[in-house]
């Protein structure tokens, strides 16, 4: 008995969507790995871009299978995109500003900064604004886009020394073992680091899927900052791949090794 043509079309569409999803995930993984020692946030963005391209191409092919002209789709997407760019220009600028300042601005929560005549302690960094608490107890919201246009001065004492690298590990990773491995690895860099301050790992948040951490080290010479960030990131990535020893906790027995999927940026 011949299958209903509509059913065949829907089946093909479904298979194409599933394939697109899988290839998109693979493309993201490969792109992140290919970026290797680049700044982790940049590598993560390239991964997202690679998967988006695959999703777009796969989506177009799948829609063609349904008999819909891709030209119409392109026009709709382009019009929606143009409308979004015009309508959300300021928000997108701020969002972009946050992205770039995440990567390149040397400050983090708790630091004292000055920007555009405003000064205060950074108490919040959200998608649109960075919130400062001024000395006279006022809250100042700085649009993130300003960080791409204005000079930022970090007035925190010895702020240049501190390098904070955010990372994520799978929720099923034995955090104690991972931390010990990272410490052993980073100890190899001690001649470049402030001996008075061994690395510190801080848990920022936990979810069912991942644990977000910050690895903080203190450098000895400001000119080493960039190379140390790269080296620390490399060592953390290598630590992920190392086998996890016998779990220590009485309550939990994690067995799977750490998984990929990190973002890291200096200074924030």
């Amino acid at each position: 008995m011949a299958l209903n043509p509509i059913l065949i079309t829907l089946l093909t569409f479904g298979i194409l969507v599933a394939l697109t999803f899988l290839v998109g995930r693979l493309a993201k993984l490969l792109a992140v790995r290919a970026m290797g020692l680049s700044r982790p946030q940049v590598a993560a963005s390239v991964g997202v871009l690679a998967s988006a391209v695959v999703y777009l191409i796969g989506g177009v092919i799948a829609i063609q299978e349904l008999g819909i002209s891709p030209d119409i789709l392109f026009i709709v997407v382009a019009l929606l995109g143009a409308a979004a760019l015009i309508g959300l220009r300021e928000q997108l600028e701020n969002y972009g500003g946050k992205y770039f300042s995440d990567v390149y601005s040397p400050f983090k929560l708790g630091d004292s900064i000055t920007i555009g005549g405003h000064a205060g302690k950074v108490i919040e960094i959200n998608a649109m604004t960075t919130v400062l608490l001024s000395d006279d107890d006022h809250l100042i919201a700085i649009p993130n886009s300003m960080f791409m246009k204005e000079v930022v001065v970090n007035t925190t004492p010895q702020a240049w020394k501190e390098v904070a690298i955010p990372i994520s590990i799978g929720a099923n990773v034995d955090l104690a073992a991972f931390e010990a491995t990272v410490f052993r690895s980073l100890a190899k860099l001690r001649s470049r680091l402030d001996r008075r301050f061994p690395p510190v790992i801080t848990t920022r948040s936990r979810s069912a899927l991942s644990t977000d951490l910050t690895v903080t080290v203190m450098i000895r010479r400001p000119e080493d900052r960039d190379v140390i960030i790269t080296e620390v990131q490399k060592r953390i990535t290598e630590s992920r791949g190392k086998p996890v020893p016998v779990p220590a906790t009485a309550e939990k027995a994690p067995t799977t090794p750490p998984t990929a999927g990190s973002s890291a940026s200096p200074g924030r």
Partner: peptide
């Protein structure tokens, strides 16, 4: 003076973290 950079120190951190993980659970 080098204690905090030794392999042994990483196990001191390990023990503290293992305790903290049990407490958080």
């Amino acid at each position: 003076q080098e204690l905090l950079w030794t392999d042994q120190y990483s196990e001191y951190a390990y023990y503290n973290r293992a305790s903290a993980e049990v407490i958080q659970q």
